[in-house]
Every structure is written in structure tokens, then in C-alpha cells.
Design a protein around this nucleic acid. Structure first.
Lengths: 215, 215
DNA sequence: TAGATTGTTAATCGATTAACAATC
DNA sequence: TAGATTGTTAATCGATTAACAATC
């Protein structure tokens, strides 16, 4: 695969393409042109062709793109099918929601279980997956060579657990703690979902509308 | 306030500035230069000054920016303090996590309650806020002129509830359903959190590392 | 005053869009 | 074959960075 020097903007559009293609596939569509796809997604056909061409040649002149094979190509690029292993750190409402809504196994991940501090949940399960004592987190990550930790703990516990994860050789942290984690040089990848950032962008636009109306 | 023609990139950086400034304030810092702030956030000082200058002149030559007043300015720009009203649509694990973790009142929002279909939760409460029957959603939104609906329902129910919200005059939807909502012309603002997109970006980078190592 | 640092204008860089030859 | 549509090269547009006069 090519994929050298691909810009962040392109990378962030790939999952959107994947969702759209899944959608089209589920409607029984077989092929689509960059022109049609562009109109449906609010992008220019040029941009779509440029984006795909970062990774190879997936289309055919005069025909367009085969939806099913394009989905697979993009899934491949995004690393689904690789069976990355994941654990949940923090088995509260948010963590439970994530585990219940993502079918990690179908999506191509291998979900190994959850960790928590609360003695009343340790030993129980989420959706059939065990909840372990957070004391055992470090050794577990090290032994099982866990790829991804899903961090859904309260703010105040975030950095300490991150340190444990980093020390145990975690490869990536999916961060929901609304803090910036310190992982140091050569630390794991960090991808954060900052709920409040998203809400503030929304209220920015509301405020702009309100100000516009006053004028 | 100026704020005309501000690019999306700038808007999406504003909440990050706000979080950083809150952090600095909580450490007792009083002032910061664009140079220092840039080094701490991984941005160039030029970019920071350009970003702020979209909205006014918040600094002072030879001194830098006063952290406390800059926070307030950015909060103002982002529409906190405006007391926008919000409801939760879908009182499951995810919705519960959001309500419990965001202190909507402190953050300057006015949270009015939740809606659900499940008879076993209707009438109960989340964190002291009532859970109503989703049948009453439309009239409630219309009567109370609700600004923001936080949509945390299962995928299959997303579009139908969106239609109800739009018909009742909701102004904005904060969308967690991992679908693209259809809101039509002159519909509400939509800000989506696509969990799977974020995870896929993470695994893209993991896959890239793995491929790099093989070479 | 001298040093620091802003806000802004100009220069650069990168991303998006347009155009078009290649080809299914 | 003619029409459609790709992949790619060139042109444009916008965002980031650099430079610097203004000034606290």
C-alpha cells in the first residue's frame, strides 16, 4: 500500500467514506462515481479521487468505483481486519455504553475485558466480558501485549492510569477523560474524544446565529 | 465581537485554548505569551495570535495575555454564559454518563431533563433530573423552546426522533448515534460525535506503524 | 529607557479544485 | 464506437508561518 505522507485531513475523511459506502452497500447499490458520491457527501469529485489516489487505484474509467471492493480497500487501509486487541479501563456508564454499542469482534477487534477499582463490579461482567481489578492492569497489558486501552475513568485518575499503561507497553490509548494525557517520548498513540470541545463548537454556532439575528 | 468569516479550523481550536487556559488558571498562572502557549500546545505563536485576532485584541504588547480575562473572552465567543437549554433524548448508559459528567448548570447550560421509551425508567431521574416519556418530547420542545437536544438513542430510532425534534423547532442536535441525520433545509445545527471514526483513525495509525516496522 | 511581545501585513506552504489525457 | 469516468498534473485558493512596526 502507498500511504506515505498522507495528510491528516485525508485520514479523517476515510472513516466517513467507509460509513457512506456501508450505507450504500446496505441499500443494495453496486457502483458509484466520484461525482455521485461527492454530491451525496458534500465533497467535490476531485477531492474524492485525490483522496483515494493516496492509497492506490481503486476505480475504473467509465465505470466508477465498485462499492463492495472499495469498502474492503478502505477497511484495509484503516486497519480493521487486523484483530487489534482492546481493553476497557473504567467500567462506568460510558465504558459500558461503548462496549455494548461497538461490536468489537465483528468490527475486527479482539476485546479482552474491562478493569475497574470498584470492588462491587470487579468479578462481574459487561456484555459477557470479565471485569478485572485495576491492580492487575499492568501485568495484564504486558502479558497479553494489549494494543488499545479505552480510557473511560474519571479525570482525576486519568494520568496515573496512563502512566501504568505506558509503563506496561500499551500501543495506543483511546482517551475519553477530557484531559490531555502525558505519554512522553516514544509513548503510545493517543486519540482523544473531547466531549466538551464538540459541545462548545455547537454553542459557538448557536451564539453566532443569535448575534446575527440581533443585527 | 468581530467573528465574521472565521474558518472552521480556528473554531475547532478555540475549545482547546479554553481547556488549556482553565488548566493554567487552576495552577495559579496569571499571564502567558503566545510563545509559551505555543510551545505548550504544539502550535506556532503566529497561529495563536492570528486565531485570537479573528475576534479582537486580547493581549498587551510586552506583557502577553492575561489568562483570566482571555478565558472569559473565549468562553464568551463560544457561547457559554448564554444559558442555552438542553435535553437528553435517550436515557441509556451513554446519556447517563454525559449528564453525570457534564455539570451542565456550572458550564452555563440549563438542563431540563431526559426522555426515554422504556416504561421502567420513565418517571425516575438521572442525577436529580426527571426522565419523561418520549411521547411528550415534541410538545415539550415546542413549549420550552429547547435549544439543544443531546441524541443518545440506538441507531434505528435516530432519524424518527430527529424528525420529531426538527418539527418541534429544536435549534441544535448534538448527535451520538453514529449516523448522518437528515434535517432538511433550514434545519437545526448538527454536531456529531462519531465514535467509530475516532477509533478508525487510531487503528489507521497503528496499522501504519505495523507496516513501517515490516519494511 | 530597553526588552518583550503584541497585532497585522506579506510570504510561504499545503490542500482543494479544475482540467484533461488515458481508457474502460 | 461513443460516452463516462478515472488518475494525475497544473492552477487556485486558503491556511499557516514569518517578519516587523507599534507599543506596553
Amino acid at each position: 500500500m502507498k500511504r506515505s505522507n498522507v495528510s491528516n485531513n485525508v485520514i479523517r475523511r476515510l472513516p466517513r467514506y467507509l460509513r457512506k459506502l456501508d450505507d450504500l452497500a446496505s441499500k443494495g447499490e453496486e457502483r458509484i462515481s466520484s461525482d455521485k458520491l461527492g454530491r451525496q457527501m458534500g465533497l467535490t469529485p476531485s477531492q474524492i479521487r485525490q483522496d483515494f489516489s493516496c492509497f492506490g487505484e481503486f476505480g475504473q474509467q467509465g465505470y466508477g468505483y465498485n462499492i463492495d471492493s472499495l469498502r474492503k480497500e478502505i477497511g484495509q487501509i484503516l486497519g480493521t481486519y487486523r484483530g487489534y486487541s482492546a481493553i476497557l479501563v473504567g467500567a462506568g456508564n460510558l465504558g459500558t455504553a461503548l462496549v455494548q454499542n461497538f461490536d468489537f469482534i465483528i468490527e475486527g477487534y479482539s476485546f479482552l475485558g474491562a478493569f475497574d477499582v470498584d470492588p462491587s463490579v470487579i468479578g462481574r461482567d459487561i456484555d459477557g466480558f470479565p471485569i478485572y481489578d485495576v491492580k492487575d492492569l499492568g501485568p495484564f497489558v504486558r502479558e497479553k501485549k494489549v494494543d488499545i486501552a479505552i480510557l473511560t475513568v474519571p479525570r482525576h485518575a486519568a494520568q496515573e492510569l496512563t502512566d501504568t499503561l505506558v509503563a506496561s507497553g500499551i500501543r495506543a490509548i483511546w482517551n475519553f477523560t477530557n484531559t490531555e494525557l502525558e505519554v512522553g517520548e516514544n509513548g503510545p498513540l493517543v486519540e482523544s474524544i473531547h466531549f466538551s470541545d464538540s459541545l462548545l463548537v455547537l454553542t459557538y454556532h448557536l451564539a453566532q446565529l443569535d448575534d446575527g439575528e440581533k443585527k
